[in-house]
Amino acid sequence: MSRYDKDTLLSDWRQRALSFQQEIGNAVIGLDHAIRQITLAIFSRGHVMLEGDVGVGKTTLLRAVARGLGGAYERIEGTIDLMPNDLIYHTYINEVGRPQVDPGPILKNGEQLSVFFFNEVNRARPQVHSLLLRVMAERSITAFNREYFFPHLLVFADRNRVEKEETFEIPSAARDRFLMELHIETPQDPAMQRALMFDPRFHDTDRLIEDVQPGVLPYRDIADIARVIQVEIKASDALQQYALDLWQATRRPQDYGIKMDGVDMRQLVLAGASPRGMSMMMRAARVSAWLNDRTSLIPEDIRQVFVDTTAHRVFFNPVYELRRSDLVGELMSGILQRVAAP
C-alpha cells in the first residue's frame, strides 16, 4: 500500500470514527467520555469493563455501539447458577417432544458476533470467568468437538458495584484482559438530567437505538485498519520514556515522590501494571493520536487513556484493597501529576 493510500485510508476511517461517535452521542447523552473511550477500544481491538450504577445507560450505550458497528449483539446476565455451558449451548425439549441442543449466546451468531455484553459479570462463578477469559484472549472457543472463532468480537462486561453478596470478584488475570475499565456515571449537567427525565425521546430506548445509523463502522474491516494505525503512528524516544516512567510509577509510586494521606507508599502496591496492560495502553494511545489527526504520539494521548487502561491493573496489598475505590483514583492522578514529559 502506497503512502498516499495509507494516508487516505487513515483519513477516511477517522471520518467514519468521528461520525460513529456522533451517532452514538445522539442516542446516549452525557456519556461523551465513555463514547470516546469505547471508540478507542474498538480501534484498539480491546474489551471493555463497564462499571456504574443501575440505569445510567450502559445497555443502551452498548446496543447503540453494536448497531453502529453493524455486527450481531448478544447479551447474557451473570447469575450465581450460570455455568460455562450456558454460554455455549442451550438444551430444551422441542415442540415434538424430543431433546434439542441449540448454540448458546456466544455461538449463535458465529463469526458475525461483534459485541458481546456480559451483564453483572461478578455474579457469575469463576468457571464462567475462566471461559470468558479464553473468549477474550483468543477470540475462540471449543464446542461440539471443534473450534469456533470470533475474529470481530468485542466483549463488554458490567460489574455491579453495589451488592457484595453472592458475587465472585473477577480474578486479576481476567481483569488484565480488559483493555479498559470505564466508570459510567449519571450525567452531572442539570440540563441533561432534565432531558433524561422529561424528553420522551429518551423513554423509548428501542426507538433511540433505531435512530443510530447501522454499520457506520463496518466491523469486518476494523481489524485491518487497527493494524495500520498501530504501524503508522510513531512514538519518539521521549514519549517512550514517558510511557515507561508511567509504568514504573504504577509499580513503585514512592520513587516518583507520590504521597497519599494515611498510606505507606512502600506497602501500597502489590503488583503494578502488567506488560500486557502497558502494551494495551499504548495501543489505545496510538488510536487516540490517530483520532486527533496526528501521526506521532504525544503525552496527552497516553494521559487520555492512562487511567481507564491502567487503574484496574494495579493491585493493592490486602490492607489497602478494601479501600480500593478511594485509593486507586488518588494514585492514578498522583502518577499523572508527578511523572514528567519530557
Binding site: 519518539s236 524516544d237 521521549a238 514519549l239 506521532s296 504525544i298 519530557p342
Partner: peptide, 10 residues
C-alpha cells in the same frame, strides 16, 4: 515547541 522537539518531529 516542546511537543515538536520531543514528540512530533524529534
Amino acid at each position: 515547541l516542546s511537543r515538536q522537539v520531543f514528540f512530533t518531529a524529534p
